[in-house]
Simulated scan of single mutants.
Amino acid sequence: MNRRTTALSAAVALAAALALTGCSSDSDKPELKVSGAFMPQPVMDMAGGFLTITNSSGTADKLTSVTSGLSDDITIHETKNQKMQQVTSFDIPANGELKLERGGSHIMFMELKKQPKQGEKVDIELHFEKSDPIKVTLPVEAPNHNPKQH
């Protein structure tokens, strides 16, 4: 009987350990990839940045800030009811994506240190709540460039 109790205790402990490891996937880092990044050539001393962040993991994350040598004043904005407003973060859902696109949510670069021209590239770094920062190169496109229209 003692052997049976020991085996049963071991089975219960193993089942509990397996259940706990199944739950621990929530603490895994999100797996983020960036695609479709671009910046329309600025026509004033400010510019927009657009890209898609895809999360292929079961853990959600948040885009919290963007940095770049192009500007010391970079914010993230959402557009609601045709009005732009600054936000502190954007949700990146588990197994989902965050689209920053013209007419919608986007990165805003104010007081540009230089005016990048079409064909040049702008380096930025995306900062997240959980993930390590991601460096992204934005190709500078025509001022009216909109991939949705292609």
Rank of each mutant, 00 (worst) to 15 (best):
E111R: 13
V12G: 07
M84F: 01
H150E: 13
D28Y: 13
S71N: 11
N144S: 12
I53W: 03
E120F: 09
M1W: 10
G103M: 05
N55P: 07
D72C: 08
A11V: 11
G48L: 09
I124M: 12
G58W: 10
K99W: 04
T52R: 04
N81A: 15
K99F: 05
L51R: 00
Q85M: 10
L138P: 01
L138D: 02
Q86L: 01
S25Q: 14
T54N: 05
A10R: 11
L14Q: 09
M46P: 04
A16N: 10
F38M: 06
T21I: 13
V136S: 01
T64E: 00
T75A: 05
N95S: 11
K117A: 15
V43W: 06
N95H: 12
V34L: 09
D123H: 10
P93M: 07
G104Q: 03
P40T: 04
V140F: 03
L8A: 13
G36Y: 02
H77M: 07
T6C: 08
S71H: 09
P133L: 09
V12K: 15
Q85I: 03
V87C: 07
K29C: 08
L63C: 04
D28Q: 11
D61T: 01
K114S: 13
M39H: 00
D132N: 15
G104I: 00
Q118H: 06
Q149L: 12
A11E: 14
T5Y: 11
T79N: 03
K33H: 09
D123Q: 14
S105L: 03
C23T: 11
E31L: 13
I107A: 00
T64C: 01
K62I: 01
L32V: 12
H127R: 06
F38C: 06
S27D: 11
P147F: 04
T67R: 03
Q118A: 15
A7L: 14
A60D: 06
P116I: 08
Q115Y: 10
I124Q: 02
H77N: 15
P139E: 11
T64R: 01
S56D: 15
C23A: 11
M46R: 12
D28A: 14
P42V: 12
E97Q: 14
I74Y: 07
A7T: 08
T88D: 05
A142W: 03
T6K: 12
M44G: 08
N2H: 10
S56E: 13
K114N: 09
T64I: 12
C23V: 11
H145E: 05
M44N: 12
E111F: 09
H127T: 03
T137S: 15
L8T: 14
A37M: 04
T88M: 04
K148N: 10
S89Y: 05
P93E: 06
A16S: 14
V122Y: 06
V140H: 02
H106I: 02
D91H: 00
T67D: 04
E125P: 01
S35L: 05
Q85V: 04
A16C: 14
P116D: 12
T67L: 03
N2W: 10
P40Q: 06
V136C: 02
T64A: 03
S56K: 14
V136P: 01
G58V: 12
S9Y: 12
M46C: 10
L98H: 06
M110I: 08
Q85K: 09
P40L: 05
T54K: 02
